[in-house]
């Protein structure tokens, strides 16, 4: 960050306030500034933290019908949840999805960025093509891929990608996609990767562009081969970007919902079910609000475990001059 001047301003102000020793009623513009911020602060306090608190509370009650029942049941809902087969499958699916999604997006995104960074002709066109799925809604992606990965059947014929395989003479590649319980959520990874890998590419590309040319040249002067330059100079410099991408993709995948709804639903034997879908199902279809709240809390915890260390880390990095 190159905001050295504002940092100084901040230090001055902070010392001024601290030097006073006791709190003074802010006046004039300072008061106005706080008032300007107040609506947002109140909104965040209530609609994010207050609501999270309420959800946490609701998960400890017996609210399992349309009529709220706030009698306290302790951890009962969580005990039931973790012993529910569907939820166990959901957690497993989330892990599978997150790992595969990260691996696919990062590797494809990085490869694309490295290829595009070689000063090739038509870079703009290629970049646009890889990036545009990102402009779409997960619902649109889901609807399209539902038909693309619809396997068809032996009796009536193949459809979608399977049909394409047939046309290309690659019939042996045909599978049941999301209708095969052994594949399930992995088929959703394909659609999600299609949508999000361009994003990772853009991030890496921006990172690559930020690497000074001198560094590469210096390495080459030192006798490094093209591969060695990548391995020992470029890739290490891209680590922060990889971390950022993991955070962004990771929190998307932990709470993935829209794509599953539009593409597969829970799938055969819940093989493409995810906690967010289960939460929706159990809360807004099954009216079991306390159990839904419990699932929400678990999703929140998973996201927090991923995000909070990163936030603390980057905030500390920013605070350093």
């Amino acid at each position: 960050m190159h905001d050295t001047v504002p940092t100084q301003v901040r230090t001055v102000q902070i010392t001024r306030l601290a030097g006073n020793g006791r709190w003074k009623m802010p006046t004039g513009d300072r008061l106005i500034s706080l008032l300007l911020l107040a609506p947002s602060v109140v909104a965040i306090a209530v609609f994010i933290y207050g609501f999270i608190g309420f959800t946490g509370f609701a998960s400890l009650t017996r609210w399992d019908s349309l009529v709220p029942d706030f009698s306290f049941v302790g951890m009962h809902n969580y005990v039931v949840l973790f012993s529910t087969t569907r939820f166990q499958i959901d957690l497993r699916n989330t892990v599978t999805f997150t790992v595969l999604f990260l691996v696919c997006c990062l590797s494809i995104g990085l490869s694309l960025a490295l290829m595009l960074d070689r000063g090739i002709r038509g870079e703009g066109v290629f970049r646009s093509i890889f990036l545009f799925p990102l402009a779409l809604s997960f619902i649109v992606t889901g609807v399209v891929w539902r038909w693309l990965l619809n396997p068809g059947s032996v009796q009536l014929g193949s459809t979608g990608i399977n049909l394409l395989f047939d046309l290309l003479g690659l019939g042996f590649l045909k599978t049941g996609w999301y209708t095969d319980p052994r594949i399930g959520i992995k088929a959703v990874v394909i659609a999600a990767t299609w949508q999000m890998s361009g994003y990772v590419m853009a991030m890496y590309l921006a990172g690559l562009r930020g690497i000074p040319e001198e560094l590469r040249e210096a390495a080459i002067v030192d006798g490094a081969t093209g591969f060695q330059v990548y391995r020992h100079v470029i890739l290490p410099l891209l680590h922060p970007i990889t971390l950022g991408a993991i955070i962004i993709l990771g929190h998307i995948s932990l709470k993935i919902f829209d794509l599953v709804v539009a593409m597969t639903g829970p799938g055969p034997g819940f093989s493409s079910d995810v906690p967010a879908f289960f939460m929706f199902d159990t809360t807004f279809r099954g009216d079991n609000f306390s159990q839904g709240a419990g699932i929400a809390v678990i999703i929140l915890i998973m996201v927090a475990v991923l995000i909070v260390p990163y936030l603390l880390y980057s905030l500390r990095a920013e605070a350093q001059p």
């Binding site: 619809n150 396997p151 068809g152 059947s153 032996v154 009796q155 009536l156 049941g176 999301y178 209708t179 095969d180 319980p181 799938g267 055969p268």
Partner: peptide
């Protein structure tokens, strides 16, 4: 059953 039963709704199956 038909191999694609998990991909179909009841009416889609009726097409068979």
């Amino acid at each position: 059953t038909n191999t694609d039963h998990a991909a179909l709704t009841w009416d889609g199956a009726g097409q068979y």
